[in-house]
Amino acid sequence: MRDKFLQFFRRKVQLRIFSGLSFSLSWFLLFLIVPTAVIFLYSFWRQEYISIIPQFTIDNYAQFLANPIHIPLFLRSLVISAAVTMGSIGLAYPAAYFLAFRVRKYKIPLLLALMGPFWTSYLLIVYAWKIILGYDGILNSLLLNLRLVEQPADLLLYSPFAVIITLIHIWSPWLVFPLYASLEKMDKSLLEAAMDLGATPTQAFLRVTLPLTWPGLVVAVLFVFIPTVGEFVTPALVGGPQGYMYGNLIENYFHLGFNWPLGSSLAFIMLAVVMVMTLLLLRAVGPDKVMESL
């Protein structure tokens, strides 16, 4: 009886260890490897009218190069994404710096307050910017009332500018966390040492704070750059023709064109480029340092 119980118990433990391992493994498999593999597979198939023919071809990749709209749109996406990343860092770094170095009380409530935008729906934020930037929008009426413009500016909404502003609003709070973490971890006496040795506050920041929080900054860049390159909802709603992005192109191939193989190849090219950029960035900083900063 006792032996049986022990045996049962042992089996249970083994099972748990095994299932614990296989859970994370299957999670990766199910939600990362399999979908990527499916897209990769589709990108080598062929489209005929509305049916997909599983026949190997590299025609889709040739089309990516042949169609003169693909590469410029891809580059535009990279530029918009880079602008969003830089703008977000510009907003988030000072906020994180302030929280880590100046605020003594209520750090946690303030950090939580920064999560405010997460509690609003993504679409709500985009529509809010439509209201602010629109022809009859808040910004235009403000400009009119201040007599800065004669008539409402129609460049605000439906432009890359609108896409960038909206995406910065959505993503910059995300950045505060990795930046705050690396700033908070920094030994503050290093700044005293720098100042003591004759460094002005600006020099101390550039020579000590910035290099030491560099890994956190890289994490922050990845946090924003990766998801925004493939962005298609925001450009569809506020982008207009000039704000049309690569993500919209992929979405259209899947949706309207019903050309899944071509859409897949475009998606895979984007994935590959972003992945290479990520690896290069991680290598430049040192992967273990980036892991540390998390």
Partner: peptide, 9 residues
Amino acid sequence: MVFQHLALF
């Protein structure tokens, strides 16, 4: 200053 915990970079 030579700091108590050195504060080397």
